[in-house]
Amino acid sequence: MQPGEFLSLLGPSGCGKSTLLRMMAGLLTPTAGEVTVQGEAPTSAAARDGLSFVFQEPTLMPWATVAANVRLPLDLAGVPQTESDARVAEALAQVGLNGFGGQRPRELSGGMQMRVSIARGLVTRPRLLLMDEPFGALDELTRHRLDTDLLALWRAQGLTVVFVTHSLSEAAFLSSRIVVMAPRPGRIVDDIALDTPWPREAHHRTSPGFNAVVRRLEDALSAAGSDTHAHTSANADT
């Protein structure tokens, strides 16, 4: 994939999109072949500094304040307090959480907790942001707002994002490129480059271009589904 892309991995459960993302992060090792991030193995220190992972859950430390949660990756890397304080403030400002640094995670809503998690991802100034269904557990309105803010961040920071989702409209709204995957066996069934212009505002969700993309994704997924079906019945016959 290219630097600066917003790539969505789209597919139903069990198609291996999360597995692929975890291999990129070095959390899993591939059984065959190899993954390189900017020419390095994902577990190397250089690659680790260049990428951040945002989980499906906010995975915040409940005993620590928002600021301490965001500072965690810097603390683990031994960054001095004076420098990390400034970077924490910057990251919180980027996700729109100015002034929330002193609060505990449980005092925040689910959407705000997810913002803290993203701030923790941004504080290390990564080039590559890996996101595993980050907004999957949120209500639709909150999700739309976070999608819009994420796009703005991506454009402002010049990030490369890999975004795992099983929502067609979320993939269509966010991505510059969508890779559609199918399960049993996990494989890539379509690779779509979107030329929809930026910036995309909320009303883009109702435009004809947007609907055409969703339709194409739908077709790719259902074709893959019936394909799997034919495969199984053929096996049953033999």
Partner: peptide
């Protein structure tokens, strides 16, 4: 320990 946080610590090379 929350498995998610443990995975995060592993990811950051703690």
């Amino acid at each position: 320990v929350s498995p998610g946080l443990l995975a995060y610590f592993e990811l950051r090379g703690a």
